[in-house]
């Protein structure tokens, strides 16, 4: 067992415990870490695990680049036309890339029992869900945001639009990760849940797509993008306050 997992075991006294009653008594025997510390450790654990399988981290990015490649091939290689389509291409690509990674948000932890231990640990499951979602954003949303300017430039967008695009995709993917965490938690334990996960998540993601694409469009035209950015940030904040609650409830239901 690695160092990182060892520290998590201290935060979750029951991590190696087999069943409910033992977990309850363990929680009394060990001093329990506070919720913030537990969330921090859960976040670090997810990041550690992800960096051991670096190949998977690249997949959403490769997918994003691949989707972008389809548009010049399918529509036209003229940069003037592609520039008009760039906000749509960027956001559809980012949305699908983020969706692709969602399936893995809880799946491995559900298989090996980690989620069950989180639920039994006596820690706030909401805080742990927030930590897991934050890890998911750091591993997919942030890389997608860093890649978005490159994709935009390949579609003929001027470099002056880079900061605006970076910012809007970064904020938008926060909201996407949070919305997606609810869908991923609800579809836990369903076989071949990929299509269902998209059906649940995409309708809820439409506002992010609308405001994100609008912000990107304004950035490309060199206009002020404060209004759609503020709306995106509002969606992200609403997600931060409500989505972990719903995801925690959904995880508990799936563990019943």
């Amino acid at each position: 067992m690695s160092r990182s997992e060892g520290t998590v075991a201290q935060a979750f006294p029951s991590i190696d415990a087999p069943a409910v009653p033992v977990a309850a008594s363990n929680a009394l025997a060990f001093p329990r870490a506070d919720a913030r510390e537990a969330a921090r450790l859960a976040l670090l654990r997810d990041l550690h695990l992800a960096f051991r399988k670096r190949g998977q981290l690249v997949q959403p990015l490769a997918f994003f680049a691949m989707v972008t490649l389809l548009f010049p091939l399918a529509i036209s290689p003229e940069l003037a036309r592609l520039r008009e389509l760039a906000p749509g291409v960027l956001w559809v690509g980012a949305l699908l890339g983020s969706l692709l990674a969602l399936e893995f948000l809880f799946r491995d932890d559900a298989y090996d029992g980690t989620l069950e231990q989180y639920a039994l640990s006596g820690q706030s499951l909401t805080a742990l869900m927030f930590a897991k979602t934050l890890a998911h954003w750091l591993l997919t949303g942030l890389p997608l945001a860093l890649m978005a300017p490159l994709v935009a430039i390949s579609l003929g967008v001027a470099t002056t639009a880079v900061p605006g695009i970076l910012l809007s995709v970064a904020i938008g993917t926060v909201a996407l990760s949070l919305i997606g965490s609810i869908g991923a938690a609800l579809t836990l334990g369903i076989k071949r849940s990929g299509a269902l996960l998209s059906l649940l998540t995409l309708p809820l993601s439409l506002p992010v797509l609308i405001f994100g694409a609008r912000a990107t469009q304004l950035a490309i035209h060199g206009a002020s993008l404060v209004a759609p950015l503020e709306l995106l940030a509002a969606l992200a904040i609403l997600g931060v306050t409500l989505a972990p609650l719903a995801a925690a409830a959904a995880v508990r239901i799936s563990l019943e």
């Binding site: 609810i182 609800l186 334990g189 019943e256």
Partner: peptide
Amino acid sequence: GIEDTQRADRASAVLAIVGVVNVPIIHYS
């Protein structure tokens, strides 16, 4: 998708409530 009726009930209930929060946001956006 969920075979167990009680789990299906509770999971879909969470989804319905999330949907209610989102319907006005989707409509206005």
